[in-house]
């Protein structure tokens, strides 16, 4: 997988700011009531790497999130994982809409 850090600048337009502050400890994944693989850290990591294709591989996953905020509450780095999920949803919805218009 190749790293494309430029991607993050796109995400900023959708209200994502703190994702790079994550140091990948995994608290969010383990505390998440979904108990689902590496969610949401997986998406945080992909966002850091700019792995757009990985995020778009299965975008539906984003909507599993309950937006309950427990990950953000317990994040030791205040990296706000909830913010990223919401931002990615906005990013994906925007993409869908734009692809529809094309």
């Amino acid at each position: 997988m190749a790293v494309t850090p430029e991607f993050f600048e796109q995400l900023e337009r959708f209200g994502v700011a703190k994702t790079f502050e994550c140091f990948n400890c995994g608290t969010c994944a383990a505390i998440c009531p979904l108990v689902y693989e590496h969610f949401p850290r997986k998406l945080i990591r992909y966002a850091q790497l700019g792995a757009l294709d990985r995020i778009l591989e299965n975008p539906k996953e984003l909507w599993r999130c309950l937006h309950c905020g427990l990950c953000t509450q317990t994040c030791p780095r205040e990296a706000n994982p909830g913010e990223l999920i919401l931002g990615l949803r906005r990013f994906v919805v925007d993409r869908w809409r734009r692809s529809q218009h094309v």
Partner: peptide, 15 residues
């Protein structure tokens, strides 16, 4: 309180 557990409601419409 700060550490409350979600009721699962928000996922109703998706799953």
């Amino acid at each position: 309180a700060n550490f409350t557990h979600c009721c699962g409601g928000p996922a109703e419409s998706i799953s």
